[in-house]
Simulated assay, not measured.
Amino acid sequence: MKYSTITIATERIRLTVLAAGGPRILALHLDNGPNLLAETPAARWQTPWGEFALLGGHRLWHAPEAFPRSYWPDLDGPPAEPVEHGVILRSAIDPGGIAKSLTVTLDPQQPRLHLRHALTNHGLWPVEIAPWAITQLVPGGLAVLPLHDAQPPPNPLLPNRQLALWPYTSLPDPRLHLTDDALLIDTALAGPPAKVGTHSAAGWLAYIHQGVVVVKWAAYQPTGIYPDRNCNLEIYYDQGCTELETLAPLGHLAPGATITHDEIWFLAPWSVPIDRQDLFKHLSKSVNELV
């Protein structure tokens, strides 16, 4: 099934988004290169409300995840609204009373985007919820999950790194490479679906593939309680895609209220090989200069 789309672009970046509903970003190109986002036409599930189609690319989710609530078919919705240098994408109101919106703004001068994810409660009672930004990238690259923010620990007697593993993540996994500072995931190697997460003050994730590095950054909130055993950064990977995921803290969303979660994406050509032990330091320095 074909869906109507809209293209927005600058001299460096071109995005394709759904023209209505979703919200979904379906394609991301840097300097007329290939689509960096995964396409998943076969990823579909039957729900009490009909078929949910994933499509691939970038989507707005909300935590905690549950079936079938999280998989409400959302491709029918209001039309996209153009804004200066971008677009606002909106969903219809789901059976739980939640409506999603995604405002995408392109930087006209450099290859970066600002994404504001918003959830609004149109129901009659408060809900505990967290916005969750999921980006499916084409498989075959190297994903970087930072375990800390490159700052000296305030108390060296307390732990400053942690990992969460999903039940279907089988260990040992030859795709995983643990350094002092980050977990690296080589998705060019074949293997079953897996997912890892962390609670990290770094606030960013990175993916290197096809001569491009993609970095997603979201402000870390040290007093917040995050979903999934307090994870603010998560990576899912299988043979069809690699997902970079950032989450906001859980909050009680009152009727009529809206909660937001902002991301900044940076894209840059990547051609110089860097030793895996130095990769975290190089990316941390670049992120600190760009945020």
Rank of each mutant, 00 (worst) to 15 (best):
E81N: 09
Q109Y: 14
V138A: 05
E84Q: 15
T242Q: 05
V87M: 07
S200L: 07
F52H: 09
L26V: 02
P82N: 09
D275A: 15
E289G: 11
R116A: 02
Q46Y: 01
A38Y: 05
A38H: 07
Y236M: 06
T179G: 08
L18M: 11
P255M: 06
G140Y: 02
G86C: 01
A92R: 13
T179P: 08
P34R: 04
R59I: 04
F67L: 09
I134D: 00
P95S: 04
P193K: 08
A150M: 06
V138R: 12
T258I: 04
I264V: 13
K2S: 12
L55G: 01
I6R: 15
I208W: 04
H114W: 14
G77C: 00
A143M: 09
L247C: 12
P159I: 09
I134P: 01
L115Q: 10
L189F: 05
I25R: 02
H199V: 11
W265L: 02
Y236C: 12
P82S: 10
R229P: 00
F266C: 06
H85G: 06
Y220D: 14
N32H: 12
V215T: 13
L145H: 02
L36D: 08
Y207M: 05
G140V: 03
G97M: 03
I13A: 11
T120E: 07
A182R: 13
P82D: 04
S284Q: 14
Y220C: 13
V212A: 09
W49G: 07
R276I: 06
V87S: 10
A254M: 11
I93L: 04
S200W: 08
R12E: 15
H148Y: 03
L147M: 06
K216L: 14
T258V: 00
V212F: 08
R12K: 14
I88M: 09
